[in-house]
Amino acid sequence: MGDDQADRVTVHVDGGVADVRLDRPEKLNALDMAMFGALAETGEALAADPSVRAVVLSGEGRAFCAGLDFANFAAMAADAPPAGASARFRRLVNDITAREPGRATNLAQQVVHVWREMPQPVIAAVHGHALGGGLQIALGADIRIVAPDATLSVLEIRWGLVPDMTGTAALIRLVGEDVAKELTFTGRMITGAEAVRLGLATRAADDPRAAATELAREIAGHSPDAVRGAKRLLNRAADGDLAGQFLEESRTLDALRGSPNQVEAVRAYFEKRPPKFTDPL
């Protein structure tokens, strides 16, 4: 992991429980190039560590993750990877439909899917904002414990885009087709309490990280073979054609990025005016 990536995620392991924290609090843990790389590499390293029995995933500061850092990703609009970009990130920018070697995901999707595919259970502790890509990261966990007043949103529609970090598969699995469509088509903000009612989150707690850590320690006290076997079986029962779904996410996003209506969505939002969209061809 590069020095810039090391500044984005912290990991502490105690008693078989890995405490993983997004660590960019001054930006509400927004996802930039370094955060993408750090999250994917952290998850992959923990997955390969047999001493880790459970993972707690949270954010430092006032939020879990506010979503994409648009300033950092501005170079993507010009199809130009930022200076110092890793090979993984350059592959994502150059062709979003390209897959990670040997995987069903691109890098952005792997940032989320790494938590679902790792053999150990992952518990997301969500407070403050979990928006767009930040929400999708939480959806990659096996269990979500949220603050009642947390703010969650499938925010991509604001920018004329679609969830592209495995979110479409997770939403259908968790809340059903109709609720998934309502949240995705509107991008409306929901509280942690409503997220629990909808099935988007597992349960609420005033201190999500403390509750998640307590649960992780309980899980870590059980047979790791049985826990890993159970996660594998439950994932298999719930998953459909993920490789096809993830590729279609990328193809759809690729067609939307930089299109007239997508550009208009962003401009209208920042100019604080109603957007003027053209009819689809």
Results as ranks from 00 to 15, higher is better:
residue 6 A to Q: 12
residue 8 R to A: 08
residue 11 V to T: 07
residue 14 D to E: 15
residue 24 R to V: 13
residue 25 P to V: 01
residue 26 E to Y: 08
residue 26 E to G: 08
residue 27 K to I: 10
residue 31 L to H: 07
residue 32 D to T: 01
residue 35 M to F: 08
residue 37 G to L: 05
residue 38 A to I: 03
residue 40 A to S: 14
residue 44 E to V: 04
residue 49 D to W: 09
residue 50 P to F: 00
residue 51 S to N: 12
residue 52 V to I: 08
residue 61 G to Q: 06
residue 78 A to K: 13
residue 100 E to S: 12
residue 111 V to Y: 05
residue 120 Q to H: 09
residue 126 V to I: 13
residue 132 G to I: 03
residue 135 L to V: 04
residue 151 T to Y: 09
residue 152 L to A: 05
residue 161 L to T: 04
residue 170 A to E: 13
residue 171 L to E: 00
residue 172 I to D: 14
residue 174 L to V: 06
residue 176 G to L: 11
residue 176 G to I: 06
residue 195 A to W: 01
residue 206 D to H: 11
residue 208 P to D: 04
residue 210 A to S: 10
residue 210 A to H: 03
residue 214 E to A: 15
residue 214 E to D: 14
residue 223 S to I: 08
residue 225 D to A: 15
residue 226 A to V: 15
residue 228 R to P: 06
residue 228 R to Y: 08
residue 231 K to G: 03
residue 232 R to I: 04
residue 238 A to W: 13
residue 239 D to M: 12
residue 240 G to H: 10
residue 245 Q to C: 13
residue 246 F to G: 06
residue 251 R to W: 02
residue 254 D to P: 07
residue 258 G to Q: 13
residue 260 P to D: 07
residue 262 Q to P: 10
residue 262 Q to I: 08
residue 263 V to E: 15
residue 267 R to Q: 15
residue 270 F to Y: 15
residue 271 E to A: 14
residue 274 P to M: 09
residue 281 L to H: 15
